[in-house]
Design a binder for these strands. Structure first.
Lengths: 168, 168
DNA sequence: CTTGGAATGTCAACAAGGCTGACGTATCTT
DNA sequence: AAGATACGTCAGCCTTGTTGACATTCCAAG
């Protein structure tokens, strides 16, 4: 694209230069490594992976969610999700209940054991997030959230916003 | 950890509640999907994946970098990287030159074809970043960067900072 | 000059976690 | 009664990560 992003209005939009954008891209890449590092370490021992973490997280967030809901949020195929879900159910971390109204649906819940793992994982992840937030301060955090939301795909953003203000 | 983050100083640090942290975590998760979506789409056609993108990106960033450097930055094993690198060299996107001083080392460069693919990928990724930055504004962008840097692992942050201010 | 260690490459085997395609079953909707 | 929907499952494939073992090449220290 443009070598440097020359603005329309004559004002130098320095934060939109390719150079600045590259720094943002690399920051995103490296930060995501940190973001997943702690849960990954915990899961490594337990024969689970990131996929299990994601499933557990969103089941915790929305107890009773259906498989289809989860598919949409995670953005994977049902075969992929099913593999993960099956082991979680077998291991007694997730319970799958047949729907009341619509018996085709399965509603997913964490068992006490599942909830315990969820807490362990999210404690670790939250702790890093807390440190980062504390170091950066509230204004930075607001900006952080703004940029992230603007980076999402349209459809994903809708899902995010639907979740955003629901309490766990 | 704490149900809600009760501050030490008596001041309500609202942005550090578990609830706020959870939103940040989910924002990070969904945003990263958007972050990689465009390059992934481009690469899907070409029988390459994210791993190739990362290698190409950092070779472009630091032409002549050694395999060991790249390993440290990417955080994968040499076997993993080697597989990716081999296909890129075979396909004529990357050139691997034996080191002048230390002939054990291989210095990596993009060929014109490699540079072309790099440009295609980073144009797409930068474009999304540009849109997000533009939508959020310069103050938000500064905050975004601050939080991301605070989220990195110590060792990674050092590498990031070393790269950060080098021009491509 | 020899030798230890570093940097690199390569082979083999394996696992996680994506994907597609096909099929089956139960259930709901029309 | 027929079609659509929700879910599960089997089979097979790919990418990308891992470990372990081993060969080569070369630098540098003794």
């Amino acid at each position: 694209m443009a070598e440097t992003s020359v603005p329309q209005g004559g004002q130098a939009l320095l934060f939109l230069t390719d150079e600045q954008l590259r720094k943002g891209i690399e920051a995103m890449f490296f930060a995501y490594r940190g973001f997943t590092a702690d849960p990954d370490r915990i899961l490594a021992d337990k024969a689970y992976g990131r996929a299990h973490h994601r499933a557990i997280h969103f089941i915790h967030r929305s107890p009773g969610t259906t498989v289809n809901n989860l598919l949409a949020i995670l953005g994977v195929t049902k075969q992929s999700l099913n593999r993960v879900l099956r082991t979680l159910v077998e291991d007694g971390l997730v319970e799958s209940r047949v729907g009341r109204n619509d018996k085709r649906e399965r509603h997913l819940f964490l068992t006490p054991e599942g909830a315990a793992l969820e807490r362990e994982l999210s404690d670790a992840q939250r702790e890093r997030m807390r440190m980062a937030y504390r170091a950066a301060g509230p204004v930075a955090v607001a900006g952080f959230r703004q940029v992230l939301e603007a980076m999402m795909d349209e459809e994903i953003r809708r899902q995010y916003e639907a979740l955003r203000d629901k309490s766990a």
